[in-house]
């Protein structure tokens, strides 16, 4: 085998290894999006979002599910469940108690959320996972104001 051929084979091998490592790092092991730093796909009031889902769930689901939304409005309360802190906008009373929008905070934002007082004006951004019949659920939330 000529020297040249060996060099070419080694070069191909090196490229394949690097490509493999890159695929592993950026595709197979790619990190979860950092929702705190993501720009919102939609910015609207919490009330308008709730009305959108309660009046036409199908259209609202197609529009907002899986999207990053930034909501403004008066927060009703914050709850704690195990390690989760959840900021809640309540718009209605139903058979399952309060109905509205439940924003589970990114752990880095827990302290900020616990410092909120009821009726305070807030802007909360998060990843909307859907409407379960009583509440709209947002995950990985952060408080932008």
């Amino acid at each position: 085998m000529s020297k040249k051929l060996i060099i070419i084979l080694l070069a191909i091998l090196a490229i394949a290894l690097v490509a493999g490592a890159l695929v592993y790092k950026f595709v197979y092991n790619k990190p979860h999006p950092d929702y705190i730093s993501l720009k919102p796909d939609f910015t609207l009031t919490a009330e308008n979002l709730f009305n959108a889902f309660t009046s036409d769930q199908t259209t609202a689901s197609t529009t907002y599910n899986g999207k990053v939304v930034e909501l403004s409005g008066k927060i009703s309360k914050t709850e704690q469940a195990d390690s989760l802190v959840i900021a809640v906008f309540v718009f209605k009373q139903g058979d399952f108690g309060d109905e509205g929008i439940r924003c589970s905070m990114d752990p880095r934002e827990n302290q900020k959320a616990l410092g909120l007082t009821p009726n305070q004006d807030v802007k909360i951004k998060g990843y909307l996972t859907g409407y379960n019949g009583t509440d709209i659920i947002l995950e990985k939330c952060s408080i932008s104001q």
Binding site: N65, G66, A81, D82, L84, I86, F96, R102, S104, T129, G130, N132, G133, T134, D135, I137, E139
Partner: peptide
């Protein structure tokens, strides 16, 4: 998934769950 709706009615023994698939982490 940490945000699952669940209800149990002990007078009828009914049990209901509502789970959002996108909330699975």
């Amino acid at each position: 998934n940490k945000q699952v709706n669940a209800a149990i009615d002990l007078s009828t023994n009914q049990i209901v769950f509502k789970v959002l698939m996108k909330s699975f982490e």
